[in-house]
Amino acid sequence: MIRYITIVLLIFLLAACNNAQKQNISGQSEDLTAKELLQGIWLDDESDNPLMLIKGDTIYYTDTQSAPVYFKILKDTFYTYGNELTRYLIDRQTEYSFSFHSISDNIVKLHKSEDPNDSLAFSVKSAEVIPIYTDVTKKDSVITHNGNRYRAYVYINPSKIKVIKTTYSEDGMSMDNIYYDNIMHICIYEGRTCLYASDITRQNFEKIISPDFLQQSILSDMDFKEIDNQGFHYQATICIPESSVCNIINLLVTFDGKLIIDPMK
């Protein structure tokens, strides 16, 4: 719980800093000469590996799962406009060399490629979207209560709803990965009578999960837990993709077909 609170506070502080940055740069003129110098492929000084391709006002990365980002240069600062606004203080820039301070305050040193074959490391298409589920997954529970027999189904449906998660490279560069969210369908039957049938999405949890966390998370799982005199109890798992940071939310479907999010025990 402490870890989750710390992460949420960090996300909140980053968002606040980003908003302040947006206000500070809104009236500044872009350095078009510096932007023109950046056109081309840039290699890491130490490894000589391609790091980024700059075409026009867009940066492309070698990782096909990282979305291209729009950028600007204002005075001595290099700004990228992805899921979050990120600023990098420029250390040095010439026609063939470029170095700047990353978020972790490492100095990233690059040099311009003169080999056309280096362009093969990049894709100028949209980033590959990472699905958590590729097929509909069905969970079927047969349960009895007070002499009555029920079937409780959960269908995990992959969707085309995109979720953007900001990640950071080892050098401290901000990159955006795109994932597909899921839609959960719960239906409950007593014999042939349908007591409840409805889709559950992340938006169902807007009132109990912070917007910053919800924006970068996916509805990753749904499980039937138990039945009692209140009704049918479920647990939804909402996670930041490819991390162990999750929210577990209780749901209750009553016998008269009402859905209660985070019910009081």
Score class of each variant (00 low, 15 high):
residue 48 D to E: 12
residue 208 I to E: 02
residue 240 I to L: 15
residue 9 L to R: 07
residue 261 I to Q: 04
residue 50 P to E: 05
residue 28 Q to D: 14
residue 163 V to A: 09
residue 253 V to M: 02
residue 95 E to Y: 08
residue 129 V to A: 13
residue 46 E to V: 15
residue 221 D to Y: 01
residue 210 S to Q: 05
residue 20 A to E: 13
residue 16 A to M: 12
residue 211 P to S: 03
residue 128 E to T: 14
residue 183 I to P: 05
residue 43 L to I: 08
residue 32 L to D: 08
residue 212 D to T: 02
residue 168 Y to H: 08
residue 98 F to V: 06
residue 236 A to S: 14
residue 69 V to S: 12
residue 112 K to N: 09
residue 60 Y to S: 10
residue 44 D to I: 11
residue 166 T to A: 06
residue 101 H to G: 00
residue 83 N to C: 06
residue 31 D to C: 08
residue 15 A to V: 01
residue 214 L to T: 01
residue 106 N to T: 02
residue 34 A to Y: 07
residue 247 N to P: 00
residue 243 S to G: 04
residue 156 I to M: 11
residue 257 G to N: 02
residue 103 I to T: 09
residue 82 G to Q: 09
residue 136 V to I: 15
residue 117 N to R: 15
residue 77 T to C: 04
residue 42 W to K: 09
residue 107 I to N: 04
residue 109 K to I: 10
residue 26 S to C: 10
residue 204 N to A: 10
residue 179 Y to G: 08
residue 111 H to P: 10
residue 65 Q to K: 11
residue 121 A to C: 14
residue 125 K to Y: 09
residue 93 Q to G: 10
residue 118 D to C: 11
residue 185 H to M: 09
residue 263 P to C: 09
residue 115 D to H: 14
residue 11 I to T: 01
residue 103 I to W: 00
residue 224 F to N: 00
residue 198 S to R: 15
residue 226 E to C: 01
residue 22 K to D: 13
residue 222 M to P: 02
residue 50 P to W: 04
residue 117 N to T: 15
residue 164 I to Q: 06
residue 220 S to K: 10
residue 233 H to P: 05
residue 123 S to L: 08
residue 239 C to D: 09
residue 68 P to Y: 01
residue 147 G to H: 05
residue 5 I to L: 09
residue 265 K to V: 11
residue 169 S to W: 00
residue 90 I to E: 04
residue 86 T to R: 06
residue 102 S to K: 05
residue 27 G to T: 04
residue 128 E to V: 14
residue 134 T to G: 00
residue 17 C to S: 07
residue 148 N to W: 01
residue 230 Q to H: 06
residue 181 D to F: 03
residue 192 R to D: 15
residue 21 Q to S: 14
residue 58 T to D: 03
residue 98 F to A: 03
residue 215 Q to P: 00
residue 263 P to E: 03
residue 135 D to G: 00
residue 31 D to M: 03
residue 159 S to E: 04
residue 116 P to I: 15
residue 237 T to F: 00
residue 93 Q to T: 04
residue 1 M to H: 09
residue 257 G to H: 04
residue 234 Y to I: 01
residue 259 L to A: 00
residue 176 D to L: 13
residue 125 K to C: 03
residue 192 R to S: 14
residue 111 H to N: 13
residue 208 I to C: 03
residue 175 M to L: 15
residue 30 E to R: 12
residue 241 P to C: 03
residue 107 I to T: 14
residue 193 T to Y: 13
residue 109 K to S: 14
residue 265 K to G: 07
residue 78 F to Q: 03
residue 202 R to M: 05
residue 108 V to E: 05
residue 77 T to W: 02
residue 15 A to K: 12
residue 119 S to G: 06
residue 205 F to D: 05
residue 63 D to M: 08
residue 119 S to K: 14
residue 154 V to Q: 04
residue 165 K to V: 15
residue 236 A to Y: 12
residue 238 I to V: 13
residue 59 I to Y: 01
residue 106 N to R: 12
residue 17 C to T: 06
residue 10 L to D: 09
residue 49 N to Q: 14
residue 138 K to L: 11
residue 127 A to L: 11
residue 51 L to S: 04
residue 18 N to F: 06
residue 150 Y to A: 07
residue 189 Y to P: 02
residue 169 S to M: 07
residue 13 L to W: 01
